[in-house]
Computed example of a mutant assay.
Amino acid sequence: MEIKPQAMVIPKETDHLEQGKYGPVFPRTPACYGFTIIGKVKPGRADTVRAYGYTLAKALEQDPYLLAPLKLHYLRWVLFDDDTRFMYQAIFDTDFDKYTEDAIALFTKAGVSTAFENLEGFPEDWRTNPEAFVHFVREHHCPSFIEYGEYPYVTADEVKKALQIKSALSEMLDQMQ
């Protein structure tokens, strides 16, 4: 089975898209699902955002599966414009509604805050008010207009399984020598 790279143009207008619990459901693309949020950092909070990145990295060292419920492929955080703006970019396997609900549940259960708390306009009641969380995300979402996948529509679980099979085959071949 040959997997051919693919690209998909995402429409600017969202009126024709299926409506989910929290608004339009953007289509699954060859890169799977995802979103990019750009927000203004509260004055003096850039170092707090950076520190939160270290906190998250340390938490993942202790529990590599901490973020597993989110079905992430990639997560990227960027501070830019002299540390006055923050970009959160995530690529994942579930639709936006499920990702949002899973993220709120995950952070609430773990008793941790979110880097978003350091952004202007982020709702203080985000743990108990998913609609306010979603409103913030939708308001700060910068949709991509094209997405490309070298291995299109493949889930993170499928990638991990393929890597496990590759490792098992390599080990088996090594033992045969």
Rank of each mutant, 00 (worst) to 15 (best):
F80C: 07
D125Y: 12
K161Y: 13
R50C: 04
D102Y: 08
A115N: 00
P143Q: 04
W126G: 02
L119C: 06
L60D: 05
G44V: 00
L106P: 00
F35N: 03
Y153R: 06
H141V: 05
P143Y: 02
Y151W: 09
A51S: 11
A46C: 00
Y153M: 00
S167M: 10
G34R: 14
Y153L: 04
A156Y: 10
R138F: 01
A57W: 04
M1S: 15
T14S: 09
F136I: 03
S144I: 13
N129Y: 04
T84F: 04
F107N: 10
C142G: 10
C142N: 12
T55C: 15
G23S: 07
T100Q: 08
D157R: 01
Y65T: 14
E171G: 00
P27H: 01
A57H: 05
H140L: 07
V9Q: 15
K21P: 07
I104L: 03
R138N: 01
H73A: 03
H16V: 08
K40M: 11
I3L: 11
V78D: 14
V49N: 07
M1K: 12
T29A: 06
I91D: 13
P11L: 11
Q19G: 00
L66N: 08
Y22K: 04
F80T: 01
I3T: 14
K4A: 10
E2Q: 12
H73E: 00
K109E: 14
G53W: 14
L169V: 15
L72Y: 00
D82I: 03
